[in-house]
Design a binder for these strands. Structure first.
Length: 258
DNA sequence: ATGGCCAGGTTTCCTGGA
C-alpha cells in the first residue's frame, strides 16, 4: 500500500499537477495540506474519475486538508483537536491493512512566524493539543500513522542553513523539542529510520532560486507507531512534482507498506 | 552585495506562507 503526503498549495491551482501525479505514481492514499478551498469547491469529480473517494476539511483561502483514497476509509474525523481559531488543519480516518486497523492522521501545523506574536503561541498550543491527543489515542489504537506538513525542521541536517533558522518558528529549540516529545511517545520518524544522515528536503521556497540552489528543508514527515515500522518497506521523497510546471513549493513524501 | 515567488480574495493591493 502506497501512502503519500503532499502540501499542494491550493488544490484548485494545482489540479493538473495532482492529476498527473496520481496517474503516474498511483498512490492508494494521498493526504493533502493547504488545499485553500471550502469543501463546496473541492474537485471531487476529478478524483472520483480516477477512483478516489475524497474526504475534506476545507477552509476558504487558507489552510484546509483532505484525504483521497482508492481504499474504503472509515471513521473520518475533522475535530479530534479543538482549534481555538477554527482553522482547518487536521483530518483523520481509519484504514485496514493486513488485518491491522490503522489510524491515519493528516496534519497541517501552523507556521508560527514571526516568533514574537500570537501566531507563535498558537503553534505551540496547537502542537501541545496534538501531543495530548496522540497520547490518548495511543491507549485504544496502537497502529497510528501521523503525516503531513509539520512545519518543524527536526535537526540541523534538515535545513540548508541551520544557523540562520535558530530563531525561526520552524527550527527553534522549543519547537524541535515538541517533535522529540512526539517521538518519545513511541513514534518513529520514518525518513530518519531509513536514512541516517542523508538530507531529505521536502520544501524549497519559491524565492531566491531556492530549488535551483537546493536551499531546502525537511518539514513534511511520516511518524508511525512501533507496531507499524516493520511494515514500512521504504520511504521516498518524490522530487518530480517540485521540478515541474507551476509547482507547489512542497513535494510529495511517500511510504510503501508491506 | 542584493533581491528575487505564489495563491486567493477583499482583486490592480493585501495577507499569508516558510
Amino acid at each position: 500500500m502506497l501512502i503519500s503526503s503532499w502540501n499542494v498549495n491550493s488544490v484548485r491551482a494545482r489540479i493538473d499537477n495532482i492529476k498527473s501525479y496520481l496517474v503516474k505514481y498511483k498512490p492508494d492514499i494521498l493526504v493533502m495540506q493547504e488545499i485553500k478551498t471550502e469543501e463546496v469547491n473541492f474537485p471531487f469529480d476529478v478524483f472520483s474519475s480516477l477512483d478516489y473517494e475524497s474526504h475534506v476539511h476545507g477552509q476558504k483561502s487558507y489552510n484546509g486538508v483532505a484525504i483521497i483514497s482508492k481504499k474504503k476509509l472509515g471513521n473520518v474525523e475533522t475535530d479530534i483537536i479543538k482549534d481555538k481559531l477554527k482553522q482547518s488543519r487536521i483530518i483523520s480516518a481509519e484504514v485496514e491493512h493486513k488485518k491491522k486497523k490503522i489510524k491515519l492522521i493528516n496534519i497541517y501545523t501552523p507556521n508560527g512566524n514571526p516568533v514574537d506574536t500570537p501566531k507563535y503561541e498558537y503553534k505551540k498550543k496547537w502542537l501541545d493539543d496534538l501531543i495530548k491527543k496522540l497520547k490518548s489515542i495511543s491507549k485504544t489504537n496502537k497502529n497510528i500513522i501521523l503525516t503531513g506538513d509539520f512545519n518543524i525542521i527536526p535537526a540541523a541536517e534538515d535545513v540548508y542553513n541551520p544557523k540562520s533558522f535558530e530563531d525561526d518558528a520552524l527550527y527553534r529549540l522549543e519547537i524541535r523539542k515538541k517533535f522529540r516529545e512526539m517521538l518519545s511517545l513511541g513514534f518513529s520518524d520514518v525518513y530518519r529510520h531509513f536514512n541516517e544522515t542523508q538530507e531529505g528536503y521536502t520544501f524549497w521556497d519559491y524565492m531566491r532560486g531556492a530549488w535551483q540552489k537546493n536551499n531546502g528543508m525537511r518539514i513534511d514527515h511520516f511518524l508511525v507507531s512501533s507496531s507499524i515500522i516493520d511494515n514500512v518497506k521504504k520511504i521516498n521523497i518524490n522530487k518530480d512534482p517540485r521540478g515541474g510546471e507551476k509547482p507547489s513549493d512542497h513535494t510529495p513524501i511517500e511510504i510503501e507498506l508491506a
